[in-house]
Design a protein around this nucleic acid. Structure first.
Lengths: 204, 204
DNA sequence: CATATTTTTGACCAACCGGTTAAATCATAT
DNA sequence: ATATGATTTAACCGGTTGGTCAAAAATATG
């Protein structure tokens, strides 16, 4: 029973910590709140993870690793670029719909330790150059307009992520605080974002 | 002398508070640090602004009001859509280059109080519908492709703002931690973003 | 100049927060 | 059963933080 129980508490801690950290950030999170949410004593947090910083690092790595692999899916098939883009945008927006606080959390806490950030990326086997090469190849073959592939990749990410990170602003600006209308809007964007990009880059 | 001196300290406080709040967020900011940076006693902060929350609200309103009016410039001329877009993107990216921490700060703290957010927008005379109407008019005249004007506006904002909010990630992913290369990239985006959008929406 | 008002300061406080410790509980192996 | 090591807890600690207060300094008023 030893290992099962250990895994169980550790998992309970990680889940609670993720919820609190992602919503309140490193500075706003309280060890007590994480302990309460995990249904354990506060000292037990320090038994499993020595310090708040260590626990935070574990969570940041965990959620950041959720985001990254998606990028590589764009290169892991030989479908035409339209299809690649379609599945990527759809997957990404779906992931963010389920985790709406994730973008803001990552954007904010990203600035804390760029070195740590670099290590996570490397450790996840994410190689942006593969994506950039794929895009450049499509350009070379005359399938899409020639441009800096980094611009294209950044544009794809921007259009997918930003509208979810700015949910409160958009809900108030465009939908009169109607969250359902906002959700429908985001749902539709799985298609409209793809179309917007393809209209810009496709050579017909 | 009364008013001049009062304005002077109040301004010193606001400048110091902006610097600290924008970089560290509400939770990470310390009243002591703000006081030090303003060159005054900590008690004086509470003399001018009763609480940390009040001071934060003042700063959030201040910096958010910096961002908003730009959106309305798109509607305050009768230039062709290409020119409107060009000046908007250029102005916006320039503003963000000068205030690189602004996007992350606003995105994070936006979630704190949506009601407060709505009031600031109203109080700034920003009416998103004016922009949406302008875009829809361009569509009706057959100048640009027909689409949900909200999508278009959100896309313009996403492409302008996100790459600056995600500076650390991009510096590490694309530029091997070379900040100068990143800066040049952003500089070029004043043009490439405009082109990317026009390629997508322009009917030739 | 004297008085009233505003601005600024140093000292202080209660609450909070991350972290520690020693003891208790539990599971397991002998 | 009991000794052993891992897990969990309650109580506690020192430092930090937002905020207060009374008094001093500066300024305005008459």
């Amino acid at each position: 029973m030893n290992e099962i129980k250990k895994d169980n508490t550790e998992e309970k801690i990680l889940n609670a910590a993720q919820e609190v950290f992602v919503q309140k950030g490193m500075d706003g999170a309280r060890m007590q709140e994480i302990a309460d949410k995990a249904g354990i004593n506060k000292a037990l947090l320090h038994y499993y993870f020595r310090s708040k910083q260590k626990l935070f690092d574990a969570i940041f790595k965990k959620v950041f690793s959720k985001i990254l692999p998606n990028i590589m899916t764009m290169v892991q098939s030989d479908l035409p670029i339209e299809k690649k883009l379609e599945t990527f945008v759809e997957n990404y927006i779906n992931l963010l719909i389920k985790n709406p606080f994730l973008p803001t959390f990552i954007l904010k806490e990203m600035n804390r330790d760029p070195e740590f950030l670099a290590n996570i990326i490397k450790g996840n086997g994410v190689n942006p150059n593969e994506v950039l090469d794929m895009l450049q190849k499509e350009m070379g073959e005359g399938n899409i307009r020639t441009m800096d592939p980094r611009d294209l990749l950044v544009n794809i990410l921007s259009l997918s992520i930003f509208p979810i990170a700015s949910k409160p602003l958009m809900t108030v600006m465009f939908f009169d605080k109607d969250k359902k209308a906002y959700n429908e809007f985001i749902e539709k964007r799985k298609i409209t974002v793809k179309e917007f990009i393809l209209n810009s880059i496709l050579i017909k």
